[in-house]
Design a protein around this nucleic acid. Structure first.
Lengths: 202, 202
DNA sequence: GCACTCAGATACAGGTCTGTATGTGATTTT
DNA sequence: AAAATCACATACAGACCTGTATCTGAGTGC
């Protein structure tokens, strides 16, 4: 019989925990100071370990970046997968609390990816996911409105996704001049105008 | 009488030249390796000087970043000011040759601005410029089409500007999946659909 | 329960970065 | 034309960062 609760973790469990904490800390620090601005020591320290822990879990910082992106992508995919369009939008809104940090991290990773092919491939996967989620959502909107989309639905998804990013960036630069709801407003305007266009072409 | 051509520049002219070359080099290196990844030494070296030249022209790297952004903003403003909508689009297209480098620089500066209020103010000025240029262009399009804009024209300018950035980012991540003309295509689609929506509300 | 293994800590060597202090030669001033 | 100035070069000190090599103590297998 197994009454015991394993307060003491096994070796592999413990390492997984360490790795997870390092990734968490790295995400925070990358958003705060940039990938280049955060040292291995700082990351390990914030996670509550020494540099030794880092180097026994990752080859170097580049590998950490890849792993971080991989983990975030998988997590996002699991959270979103199977949700309806409405729920995905709600999920996006709830995440919007710390949007700037999240956007900063994504942007840092993007810049990093320009200089590292491996990271670029990871990021590409993540972005494809977002685009197609948007495309699916839009498809549902058109179906409900009973209108034929005015262009390739993947293209429209790309536009919606790109627009969200662009608007968040603008809001981060000038928070006073760009309202919080600007993203929602803009996407809704797009939907309405595309439906209007769809009506005509039909 | 002054026949002489000043091959030998005066003190102030020479310093201005040095400053300009340092800014130029900094722009290149920031795009290549990031603001944090480019050292003062590398910047000075690429410009053809030593670190002494740098520190006699700038307090530190932060001041250089501010100056760089200021200079680019002014240059852009001078180039675009007074041009028609069509010519501005042509100018944008011509610049598109080395878009990725240009976008990387802007993104680097954006990230930097998140952590430095002074830079943020500079960047805000630059972005306002771009947004209103777009707004003006769109206004002209609506005027020609004889249609009332479907929303605040500034809002539409913001959308167009944000969308361009977002699309360029997506193209940098997945060059094979996003065509070169995607930006032009997307903006044209927006114009058409907004005109369609405008017709109805009229 | 004893030897083994390995995650993580500690110590160290080599390199790079920044900012300052001082030197120098060309230009400016008087 | 001598003195003063100043843009830029050079040298140096201190901090920090990376990656490796070695150590230790807690799980693991026999």
């Amino acid at each position: 019989m197994q009454y015991c609760i394993p307060v003491r973790l096994s070796r592999v469990e413990k390492q997984a925990q360490t790795r997870g904490r390092l990734l968490e800390a790295a995400g925070e620090l990358f958003a705060e100071r940039g990938v280049n601005g955060a040292s291995v020591e700082q990351i390990a320290e914030r996670a509550g370990y020494s540099r030794g822990a880092f180097y026994s879990n990752f080859e170097d910082k580049a590998e950490l970046v890849v792993a971080l992106l991989q983990e975030r992508t998988r997590r996002e995919h699991n959270e979103v997968k199977g949700l309806s369009w409405e729920r995905v939008r709600a999920w996006n809104r709830s995440r919007a609390r710390n949007v700037t940090e999240w956007l900063a991290l994504r942007t840092e990773l993007w810049l990093y990816s320009l200089r590292d092919g491996r990271v670029r491939r990871q990021l590409a996967e993540r972005e494809r996911l977002s685009r197609s989620a948007h495309a699916q959502g839009l498809a549902e909107v058109f179906r409900r409105a009973g209108v034929k989309p005015p262009a390739d639905i993947e293209f429209l998804g790309l536009i919606a996704h790109a627009l969200e990013d662009g608007l968040l960036i603008q809001r981060a630069i000038t928070p006073d001049e760009v309202r919080d709801e600007v993203v929602v407003d803009a996407v809704e305007l797009l939907c309405r105008s595309w439906i209007a266009l769809g009506d005509r072409t039909k």
